[in-house]
Amino acid sequence: MLRFVLRRLLITIPTILVVITLTWGLIRLAPGNFYSGEKPIPKAIENNIREKYGLNKPWYVQYGKMMGHVLLLDFGTSLKYEGQSVNGIIARSLPVSAAIGLSAYLLALLVGITLGSFAALKQNSKLDYASMALAMVGISVPNFVLGPILVLIFSLTLYWLPPARWYGFPSRGMVLPVLTLSGIYMAYIARLTRAGMLEVLRSDYIRTARSKGLSERQVVMRHALRGGLMPVVSFTGPALAFLLTGTVVVERLFTLPGLGNYFIQASLNRDEPLIIGIVSFIAITLLLMNLVVDIAYAYLDPRIRY
């Protein structure tokens, strides 16, 4: 197991470097600069700016400096939010994104697994069709359409929940963002669970369990659920990546000061240190999470040994 983790880390590190290099390359290859705006800037001022940020040095020196930041996990100062360290911004915005994202995923697991299992157990029943149609709706309605509709209903019409802003964790203000974000996961997880459970319920070992005289409930809870949920476990890795894109939308919809919002702002502002910082942070987190999911998978499925 230790060897597997080490080997995976060895593959992971170059992947992270590739992501960062690609991002840096994209920023540098694109025409224009972070300081260039509507009006042209006098040459002398431009030279000063280039001098200050080291943009007059050869590209490999700049690349080396950037990589040095990444390796030390200290991403320097933001260009746009003057005087604020990138690390500080990440430390401040991460808890917001994490609270929303993880709550949404937990909710999605709970609802998705329940719906999916019942759909599989009552295959071709009305319940099955209803939950699968619902899941299809969940996959088809973009979250930036779902969110405002929820706001329209629960905030602007019923006045039950606040329509926007961050009120801390936990708070009633989290309800709508979490619901908005979790919709599509619920749908995916319900579909995955149903497919996984149907496959397992047809398998030989479930027939064996039934032939032992176990009740249907025991067959499902003890024997079927474990195998049926394995696809959901392996979905968790990509789900975390997807969650990121989801939080970007939700944070913007509900004006939450999360990582995604800062990332979009940084991209629009060409705030290079902040972009590099957030991308590195996201890449590292994602790849570590994938590693954790792989280990969990191996732990849950005794047949897999690395």
Partner: peptide
Amino acid sequence: RGRRIAMIFQDPMTSLNPFM
């Protein structure tokens, strides 16, 4: 089932629960 009539199946590879 299991108590008075028990069964053995064809494929022992897939008839036992792999997770247990």
